[in-house]
Simulated scan of single mutants.
Amino acid sequence: MKEPNKTLLDKMRLDKWLWAARFFKTRSLATQAIEQGRVNLAGERVKPAREVRPGDRLNLHVGDSDWTITVRALSMQRGPAPVAQALYEEDAASHARRQQQVSERELAASPAAAIKGRPTKRDRRLIHRFTDE
């Protein structure tokens, strides 16, 4: 009986790697992002089945964040976050840009913050006075 090949991976599908690296919750979401042009490999638009290798540079647009990363390792399975973070290395400029985006979002007023919930008795009286009820 033959023993399965236990060599390290040298290439794998891009959508599967994005899923394993925890950029997307499912492979189908990773596939959609690639097809919509939110993932570029070496500055070029690619297809989900494109093979990715260690050393490849990816530009990702995930949610409100833009990532510029270098693939460090490949994994066939999705593991815990610390293991997934070891699969890539983010550029210093990309990290600084993301931190800037986070701080800008924190400073911006949330539309939900303006809504307090149910009006108080005083608010209700003012509303009724305004609407002449």
Rank of each mutant, 00 (worst) to 15 (best):
R22F: 14
R45N: 15
A20F: 04
E35K: 15
E44L: 12
R50V: 05
T26K: 07
R22A: 14
F24V: 06
V39A: 00
V62W: 02
W19H: 11
V62G: 04
R45W: 10
R45A: 13
E51T: 03
S28C: 06
L58S: 03
M12K: 10
G55V: 06
G37H: 06
K47D: 08
A42L: 08
K16C: 05
R27A: 10
E35W: 01
T26Q: 11
M12E: 14
G43V: 11
I34W: 01
A33S: 15
R45M: 13
D64H: 10
G55K: 07
F24S: 00
L29R: 00
R38C: 09
R22G: 13
R50Y: 02
D15W: 06
R22P: 06
V46S: 03
A49F: 05
P54Q: 08
A30D: 01
E44P: 03
G37D: 07
R38P: 04
N40L: 15
R13A: 05
P48Y: 03
V39Q: 00
R38Q: 14
G43R: 05
L18G: 03
V46L: 04
A30M: 12
A33V: 13
G63E: 11
G63A: 12
A49H: 07
M12P: 14
R38D: 12
A20V: 09
N40K: 15
L14I: 15
E44S: 08
G63R: 09
D56N: 15
G43A: 10
Q32H: 12
L29A: 13
R53K: 12
A20Y: 05
N40V: 12
L29M: 15
M12S: 06
V52W: 02
D56C: 09
I34C: 05
N40F: 13
K16M: 10
F24P: 01
L29V: 11
K47M: 08
R50D: 02
T31P: 06
W19Y: 15
L29W: 03
A33L: 12
R27P: 11
L14E: 00
V52Y: 02
R27L: 09
L58W: 00
V46I: 15
Q32L: 14
D15N: 14
N59R: 09
P54R: 07
